[in-house]
Design a protein around this nucleic acid. Structure first.
Length: 572
RNA sequence: CGGGGCGUGGCUCAGCCUGGUUAGAGCGCCUGGUUCGGGACCAGGAGGUCGGUGGUUCAAAUCCACUCGCCCCGACCA
């Protein structure tokens, strides 16, 4: 392609609206333009990259026996009502009505439609297993679109679904996807971690997320470099930092202390001149079915929402209202504790196992209790409730843990029978008995792969795309194209690249070299062939974008030099 | 939905507080010429209902009200 004919509107300065790196870079490099909040136009460079990502996805999905479908983005309400998600999705789903007033929505994912197809046509175990996938535009009415292409309202997703007769079959399909995803992301040139994910309160069994570390991400992941342990923060476990001070080692009885206006952990700790780790924090929450719980945590620890949900077997929950707390505890938040509380279940975090003589609220305003010990002064059941915190160590080895911000690029999930049951997807088994089909669901955010690559591989000069997903593999940059000798040499190299099937961009613009170098660096083409001063000696310069490594190569060898490296990168 | 910020040529921004001729700058764009290894130079030129509506005023980019849009923080995120 000739640069002069391509639409590549690069920007010299960062648009004011862009905050995260990938957003800034994709705008500046002329890949994307915003149409509205969370709605983007993909210009030719982005489209070329996205096409390459999708081609890799197709190859790997086909390799595990996946069959490509194309389902409608526009869905009638009925299928979603059947699965129950018409209500569950709430405001996150775009909904509309047709001219006759019939309810429709724009699909956020396609479990329902796939299940709809399967239940009409798949009748026998002999037709299983199946892996069905599509690459489709999805819609989500995000409360807050942000971070460029990272959180948007319309995006492309590869979603696949597996159908099996038995759990062992699902295990196979799940493992096939795990391996395929690794190959896909490896081929896209990404560095990523796979983490055990929380599978939701809905009871799905196993689930893993594919995450790329970036400060632009919103998901926190706990990683142990030594052991390879990696888990979503929602689910991660760790060894807490030991208490800052030892507990009083004596058989002591609770003792009231006056703590006027000392409400927060830090205030009470400072007032009593003890470490926050010597305090027991009381958190009162109420589940959506109106069951109240008292959760006890070490003063410096946070309650993990998902762990509480697991412990309490509940979905959504909320902090208790002050009036409720007053009714149950006889005191305001800030002076709450477990002693004397029997009206609601008490859950205590594992980190408090073995502790004694701690300080906690007295259930009397402006008073706390010293010397409170589980088993002696109150009863509670142990659960893992605390969220992993900075400074914690590996639960097995005690080695260092890192809490990293990441973006989720893929997710594999054992669905189980959720949709088979709600929508009636059954087949006859060997014995002629109607049996529900067990399903898996597997997604990849296509734009997020592009964003992750940009987040991972850009520098002050712009993007440095992996060869496999770069919009072009090589760019030819004649320093002075108005010189007929240079032009002729460049034309020849261009033709040679094309004949070898290399994606080549020819910067035929009659501009000063600085502009062309800057633009080439900005848009992230992995290799650049520069025809400059030494062309007279039969030498061109080949520059690797990543690391800005320069090589002087004889003109006659330049095309092969690049082509070999491109081929090597693609065959990895 | 709560909190904060912004809206002035294609981009980045100044001007607004303290109202007063033809609304500015840099970059980009067009024409001609000179340049040609890291966002060149000279000369000439085009381009703006100051987000919108209403109000105050002799007079509004500037003050007031409403409204729309965008960004950030939070809530939210199968």
């Amino acid at each position: 392609m000739l640069w002069s004919r391509l639409f590549i509107p690069t920007l010299r300065e960062n648009p004011a609206e862009a905050e995260v790196i990938s957003h800034q870079m994709l705008l500046r490099a002329g890949y994307i333009r915003a149409l509205g909040a969370g709605i983007y136009n993909y210009l030719p460079l982005a489209q070329r990259s996205l096409n390459k990502i999708q081609a890799i996805i197709r190859e790997e999905m086909d390799a595990i026996g996946g069959q490509e479908f194309y389902l409608p983005a526009l869905n009638p309400a009925e299928v979603w009502q059947e699965s129950g998600r018409w209500d569950v999705m709430g405001d996150n789903m775009f909904r509309l009505k047709d001219r006759y007033g019939r309810a429709l929505c724009l699909g956020m994912t396609h479990e329902e439609v796939m299940t709809f197809i399967a239940r009409g046509e798949v009748r026998s175990y002999k037709q299983l297993p199946q892996i069905w996938y599509q690459i489709q535009t999805k819609f989500r009415d995000e409360p807050r679109p942000k971070s460029g292409l990272l959180r948007v309202r319309q995006f492309i997703m590869k979603d696949s679904y597996s159908f099996d007769l038995a759990p062992e079959g699902l295990d196979v399909a799940y493992e096939k996807h795990r391996v395929a995803y690794c190959r896909i992301f490896d081929r896209c040139g990404l560095e990523y971690v796979t983490v055990e994910a929380h599978s939701g309160a809905m009871g799905g069994s196993q689930s893993q997320e594919f995450m790329v570390k970036t400060t632009a991400g919103e998901d926190y992941v706990v990683i142990s470099k030594d052991t390879g342990y990696a888990a979503n923060l929602e689910k991660a476990t760790s060894r807490p930092v030991p208490p800052a001070e030892p507990d009083p080692d004596a058989d002591l009885a609770p003792e009231e202390v006056h703590t006027p206006n000392q409400k927060t952990i830090d205030e009470v700790a400072a007032f009593l001149k003890i470490a926050p780790t010597s305090l027991m924090k009381s958190v009162v929450v109420v589940t959506e079915d109106e069951r109240p719980f008292l959760c006890l945590l070490r003063g410096d620890h946070q309650l993990s929402e998902t762990k509480f949900q697991t412990a309490a077997h509940c979905g959504e929950f909320r902090p208790a209202h002050p009036e409720e707390i007053r009714t149950w505890f006889g005191a305001d938040p800030g002076s709450l504790g477990p002693v004397g509380i029997t009206a609601l279940p008490i859950l205590i975090d594992e980190a408090l196992r073995g502790r004694k003589n701690m300080v906690t609220g007295a259930n009397k305003d402006d008073y706390h209790l010293r010397n409170v010990t589980l088993g002696e002064d109150f009863q509670a059941t142990f659960h893992d409730l605390r969220q992993v915190a900075e400074g914690d160590t590996d639960i097995d080895t005690g080695g260092p843990l890192e809490i990293a911000k990441t973006v989720e690029i893929g997710h594999i999930f054992k669905l189980g029978y959720k949709y088979s049951h709600s929508m009636g997807l059954n087949v006859l088994n060997h014995d002629g008995v109607e049996t529900p089909v067990i399903m898996g669901s597997y997604g990849i955010g296509v734009e997020r792969v592009l964003c992750a690559a940009v987040e991972l591989y850009s520098d002050a000069n712009g993007i440095s795309m992996p060869v496999t997903i770069a919009p072009f593999e090589v760019v030819i940059t004649p320093v002075k194209i108005s010189d007929p000798v240079v032009r002729e040499a460049a034309d020849k190299i261009y033709a040679d690249f094309k004949s070898r099937g290399i994606d080549v961009l020819f910067d035929d613009r009659d501009m000063s070299p600085g502009v062309k170098f800057k633009d080439a660096d900005l848009i992230g083409i992995p290799y650049r062939v520069t025809l400059g001063k030494k062309l007279g000696e039969g030498i061109v310069e080949v520059v690797e974008r990543r690391g800005n490594v320069k090589h002087e190569v004889p003109v006659a060898e330049a095309v092969a030099w690049v082509a070999d490296r491109v081929a090597a990168a693609k065959s990895k």
